[in-house]
């Protein structure tokens, strides 16, 4: 922020008359005041719970403390020791990280494919594609989960029916959610399906920024389709790619509703918990608010750790431009 304020150079390509003189800008309170509501809401909405969460993670805090029949005692790192020495926690973390990267990568690959497709098809086809993706994106979560659950229903689901029709007799009456592997397969399909539209639209927008002339020139110089993609398209849209990947990792790491819903529809809870549902189980189902806060802190650190690289490269790109 401070750097931006003292930066006296006008951005390239903008007429010199556009930005008001720096001297003037500094005196104006408007930009700061406009920040106040956002900051205040953030502090109130996120800051307070975060402080409370940090405090609680060092306390013995359960239902009795919640109802005021016992005082929360400070117990140092006991909650952390408890969760980190529990193999369940590590299994959940490993499962979450693998699921997160698998889902995020798949989303990005499919999203990229759809974005490239949108560039090369006719307007009518593109509009149909865009509208259907918007519809998928806009469907309320629980409504679409219900439909997916029906699709994979053991007895009446169209997926099992279709698989039997094309010759996989063994799939008749198959319980997709009972086995953790197929559970995550179904969950992955749902999560990816829901995230692809956003990625595809963002990347499509980025692709419009790739200069046609450069591509044409490269083509004339004999660059193949793959070469053009790798050396021209990808570097141009890299900032968008990184930010979309960053968001996907954050979203897929804290995936909750999809897993929770499928667990309720037949999944084996203890073998399918990801960080979000594990946290919910500890905090809400078992009322172990202290232990759950510690897990939430670990989850926060994990998110920061996983995204650190992306944030750093984003910052570097910003500085470079």
């Amino acid at each position: 922020m401070a750097q931006a304020m003292t930066d006296t150079e006008a951005p390239p390509g903008v007429p010199a008359t556009a930005p008001p003189p720096v001297r003037n800008r500094r005196r104006r309170p408007a930009p700061y005041l406009l920040l106040v509501p956002a900051l205040a809401t953030l502090l109130l909405g996120l800051g307070y719970p975060l402080v409370r969460q940090v405090a609680m993670s060092f306390q013995e805090f359960g239902l009795a403390q919640q109802f005021g029949t016992a005082d929360p005692g400070w117990i140092g790192f006991d909650n952390y020791v408890e969760i980190l020495s529990d193999p369940t926690t590590w299994a959940v973390i490993a499962r979450s990280v693998v699921f997160c990267f698998a889902a995020a990568s798949l989303t990005l690959v499919i999203g990229m494919g759809v974005a490239l497709l949108m560039r090369s098809i006719s307007t009518v086809a593109r509009l149909i594609l865009q509208v259907s993706m918007l519809a998928a994106w806009a469907t309320p979560l629980i409504a679409s989960l219900t439909v997916w659950n029906w699709l994979f229903d053991t007895r009446y689901g169209v997926v099992n029916w279709l698989l039997v029709k094309i010759g996989f007799e063994g799939m008749e009456g198959y319980s997709w959610l009972a086995n953790p592997w197929t559970f995550f397969l179904v969950a992955g399909v749902i999560v990816v399906w829901m995230s692809v539209p956003f990625v595809a639209f963002s990347l499509y927008a980025a692709l419009t920024q790739v200069p046609e002339e450069t591509l044409e020139a490269a083509q004339l110089d004999g660059a193949s389709r793959t070469q053009r993609f790798r050396h021209i398209i990808v570097p141009t849209i890299r900032p968008v790619l990184s930010i979309v990947m960053l968001l996907q990792i954050v979203w897929d790491l804290r995936v909750f509703a999809q897993i929770k819903y499928l667990q309720g529809a037949g999944g084996t809870v203890s073998e399918t918990n990801l960080l979000g549902t594990y946290l919910y189980q500890l905090g809400i189902a078992q009322s172990e608010y202290g232990v759950a806060s510690a897990v939430a802190m670990v989850m926060l650190l994990l998110t920061l750790g996983l995204t650190f690289g992306y944030v750093r490269s984003l910052l570097r790109e910003e500085r470079a431009s």
Binding site: A178, V269, S270, Q286
Partner: peptide, 19 residues
């Protein structure tokens, strides 16, 4: 006991036996 129910321990147990 509520924790047993909210964590679906019994559902899991019977599901595994059935499986």
């Amino acid at each position: 006991w509520t924790e047993v129910e909210t964590s679906q321990v019994m559902e899991e147990f019977f599901g595994k036996i059935a499986g």
